[in-house]
């Protein structure tokens, strides 16, 4: 890790902060081993048969990490996510900065939506975007509504100053109409 991390070890409290700051920049060049991110890992409704299934494999390392979210922000533009969803306010596609998730707002839901596409117009990017980059885009999408840690969220944009930066976005609380939301997988 970087030298500021090694130099700041005197106070325990500061050490905790520093470790968090190191995590903020942590990189996995090839990406973590990918668990089951297919249909079995996500749900799109809020109704179960019997007891809720245990949550699928977590990929939270992407959304607590400034590098990945920053990469996601760039990829969001490069893969034309922004031409349909604007800077989160929506256009052809729905807004991504509000408190509603049609197909689920967890990292795994968003990852699945990008890969699988959705029936009312969301194109499938399966085989078009490398797996790790899909996670990065998904993490960035969550930052649009303040779901990612502020320390890891982007603080500036290169484009028209159209809205508050992700770092300053108030955290939206997904409602019951958002399948796969907090109630379902206990992510809050």
């Amino acid at each position: 890790m970087s030298s500021p991390c090694r130099s700041a070890v005197s106070l325990a409290a500061l050490a905790v902060l520093t470790v968090a700051a190191c995590d903020r920049e942590e990189r996995e060049p090839r990406g973590a081993p990918v668990g089951d991110s297919g249909p079995a890992a996500i749900t799109q409704g809020t109704l179960y048969a019997g007891q809720p299934s245990p949550p699928g494999p977590s990929h939270r390392e992407y959304e607590g990490n400034a590098y990945h979210i920053s990469q996601g922000k760039q990829l969001y533009v490069w893969f034309n996510c922004g031409t349909c969803h604007a800077n989160g306010g929506g256009d052809i596609g729905p807004p991504l900065m509000d408190d509603q998730w049609i197909y689920g707002g967890t990292l795994e839901n968003i990852h699945a939506t990008i890969l699988q596409g959705r029936p009312n117009g969301m194109p499938s990017f399966r085989g078009k975007i490398p797996e790790q980059q899909v996670w990065e885009i998904a993490a960035y999408v969550r930052s649009l509504s303040g779901q990612t840690p502020k320390a890891a969220s982007p603080g500036r944009s290169d484009s028209l100053n159209a809205k508050p930066d992700e770092q300053r976005m108030p955290r939206e609380e997904p409602k019951g109409s958002s399948p796969g939301g907090p109630n379902l997988e206990g992510r809050q």
Binding site: A86, G88, G89, G90, P95, Q100
Partner: peptide, 20 residues
């Protein structure tokens, strides 16, 4: 009228290509 039918978020000034 995209801001209404798409329930767009006008906090983003570029929503609906700037119309919202």
């Amino acid at each position: 009228g995209a801001v209404v039918v798409g329930n767009l978020d006008p906090r983003d000034a570029t929503a609906a290509k700037g119309f919202a």
